[in-house]
Design a protein around this nucleic acid. Structure first.
Lengths: 231, 231
DNA sequence: GTTAAAACTTGATATAGATCATAAAAGTTG
DNA sequence: CAACTTTTATGATCTATATCAAGTTTTAAC
């Protein structure tokens, strides 16, 4: 029997986008005529919740977060590494407004693709549309997992999830420079900053992790995994 | 300035599916050769989390819930009224396994559509693929809203959301026969059955709602809406 | 290089909801 | 319709996590 991947709070997809390979020369031309490349500095807003969605975005370089907010609260929906297409939810959706904010964790390069050109290509090229469905679907599966975890798991489990996720999927090593703040951890895991700090300290005291300034190291991966699974 | 719909825990989409209209005669034939119609009794499982996803489902008649579970907990992802396509997440997703359970609240009729035939049509017909993207996207937007609410709103607000959602989107009247149990409410709003019971009682005492046996009536819609907005 | 603003930290306290226990109703089944 | 199961209900208690308050450290800005 195959082991099915456990449900976790992880925010980063595994896929790299290669959806543009199925485009014809003509479609590629249309696309290129409707793309602008924009550089964003660390901390800058790439797209704003509630504003008109005139484009979809392709993150060429950098790291970004996608988050929803109201007056008082913020929830980070996902973290986007390079080579990812974002903003697809606005594609054919009644109001044509971004459902979320996106902002850059580090200096980033984003290609803005005119949404009408993008729609046109989808409407003509079924292979491309299939690729897009693929991307949207794997995103949905991930969101369901996060949704389940954030509503059912205890805080320690959720925090462990996110630490493992950063290590496995973004940095691909056990030791890395932490780009997220404690507040980001809080907004990823649906708790307060204070609670995150206390729990990170507990992990440190229990020698699961090590934090020195911005340097973050996982010292006991297996136990963190257990906390993630049973937390 | 247009008022943008407030974020809520609502679980029911507004769309009715009319995606099959864009199919050619030939595609329609392929589809029809790969459909079986199955009747499910109240309470029966329509699809099982973890099992192979050999088909997508179209709910012709009835009412169903889509939910995820592990050993101890359950989260209802959404409630599906008639004329809805479900199971699309498995379409092109690596493992081809259902991510959730679906079960019938009332006697229901479901068309099971072979997933390979469905894929084939998407892969050929960009208009159809576009419709599917539309469906998936409006589902995603709704899931994001629920995700935000369940992680940020207090329980009273979440419960109010669901009551309003049932009234507005499923029954389309203020008074209706309640098909959901207290446990369903709990699994929809991410709390325990006991808490739901206590809160419903509070709503009753405050004359926001009336419950007599299976008969459920909303007596103060506006105040429930306020609780939903500020809860 | 000083000052202001964020980001982090820690402790004390509060509380929304969970958990546990028990029982009455309501539904189901042979 | 008697026996059983499930759902609803309510009270007592507990606890994980939020909130508030006050400090330190780091980062950004002028």
């Amino acid at each position: 029997m195959t082991t099915i991947g456990s449900i976790n709070t992880c925010t980063v997809g595994l896929d790299r986008c290669n959806c543009f390979e199925s485009l014809s020369d003509e479609e590629m031309k249309l696309l290129n005529e409707n793309i602008v490349e924009v550089k964003f500095k660390k901390g800058e807003t790439i797209c704003k919740q509630g504003s008109f969605a005139s484009h979809v975005m392709y993150l060429c370089k950098g790291l970004a977060k996608v988050y929803m907010e109201n007056q008082n609260e913020t929830l980070i929906l996902k973290i986007i590494p390079a080579d990812n297409l974002v903003g697809l939810t606005s594609l054919f959706n009644g109001n044509n407004v971004f459902q979320y904010n996106i902002s850059a964790y580090v200096d980033s390069v984003v290609k803005l693709i005119d949404i009408n050109a993008f729609r046109e290509i989808i409407n003509k090229n079924a292979k491309f549309a299939t690729e897009i469905i693929q991307i949207i679907n794997s995103n949905t599966v991930q969101t369901y997992g996060r949704f389940f975890c954030l509503t059912q798991k205890q805080s320690y489990g959720r925090l462990a999830d996110i630490i493992l996720c950063l290590s496995d999927r973004i940095y691909k090593q056990r030791s890395f420079e932490l780009l997220l703040s404690r507040k980001d951890f809080a907004e990823l895991s649906g708790m307060t900053t204070e609670t995150v700090i206390r729990m990170l300290k507990k992990f440190k005291d229990d020698e699961l992790i090590e934090i020195e300034g911005k340097n973050f190291t996982i010292k006991n991966y297996d136990l963190l995994k257990k906390i993630s699974d049973y937390g």
